[in-house]
Design a binder for these strands. Structure first.
Lengths: 171, 171
DNA sequence: GAGTACATGTAAATTGTTACATGATTTA
DNA sequence: TAAATCATGTAACAATTTACATGTACTC
């Protein structure tokens, strides 16, 4: 039920429509949790039914604005503090990196090189953006913290890839 | 369809039953991909139907042994080299770490401390085991590579947590 | 002979993906 | 007025989880 709580947290700062929420979710949860646009509407409906969110306004173009209720705030805290985390991991990038060991030298090196290229292309603008944020935002800003975490994960992955390339080359 | 290929790769080294496979999968794919025991049987059936694996023997206690076919080897290579990776991430541990920013100071510090404890408890024996492996195994052994990657991810996460604790404390 | 570990599954519910449907408002 | 963007959804399918069902062989 992580999506439910990720949506709840994204809605926390103030009233938003499903459409706005989806865009903000992509930004804040980048590298942490992924959801399709249409999943937002379903989660908002379920959160509303459970009393954790409520519709506060209807705008033009059928726009519906929601906000978190006090019960929603409690639920988010309860989930973070009292519910035992589900620590299962499923990461296709990491899986692929691992399975490179089943390939022959040439294929392995070219797949590792491609992966390195893609991850570097994600990391570099992220680092630049974080340097910029560091000057303006408060240090515990959730978006900045999320991006910092993503950057560290990418760096760990890139370090491993560099090491893997060296090992394969030495074969 | 990552599970399909993760299972295929785990079956690659030699004939195994679903039961053996599930245990090996837990070991090799630890920190990369998680699957329930009963998912193995389903995937083995689908791999067999697709011609990527075949049943080679029936043993005691209804034990069925499978092995990868040449078509299965080709399919694994094709997936790694030619199929565009699905880079979506869903990681509840990371999500929780991020959402800690919605908690008040006391709750935030206690959740971060708990997380640090759990991750350290996973990392330490892993590092010890890897030091041991380094003396005996070949450097491109897939299990060792997978565990090394997991260790680096845990270290990145722990570094981020230490930083987050400092930032929260400075509030 | 009782308990543990081996060994394979099925059914129902939930979650996530893909493709489609529908219409409103703004901008060029 | 045509195109882009806003805005919300539904239906069918695939993947995953949870709970259950069934029986076998070894070990104390």
């Amino acid at each position: 039920m992580s999506l439910r709580h990720a949506v709840l947290a994204t809605l926390l700062p103030g009233p938003q429509s499903g459409y706005d929420l989806a865009k903000k979710f992509d930004q804040v949860m980048r590298g942490v949790w992924y959801a399709r646009r249409n999943q937002m509407y379903g989660e908002l409906a379920k959160l509303t039914e459970a009393g954790f969110a409520e519709e506060v306004a209807e705008g033009p173009r059928g726009r519906r604005t929601y906000q978190v209720t006090p019960a929603g705030r409690d639920e988010l805290r309860r989930w973070l503090v009292d519910v035992e985390p589900d620590r299962t991991v499923r990461d296709e990038s990491t899986l692929r990196a691992l399975l490179v060991s089943t390939l022959d030298r040439g294929d392995a090196l070219s797949v590792l090189a491609r992966e390195e290229r893609v991850l570097t292309a994600e990391l570099e603008p992220l680092r630049a953006y974080l340097r910029e944020l560091a000057r303006t935002e408060r240090p515990t800003d959730p978006q900045a913290m999320g991006l910092e975490l993503r950057a560290r994960m990418l760096e760990a992955m890139l370090g491993w890839i560099a090491d893997a390339r060296r090992r394969v080359q030495a074969t």
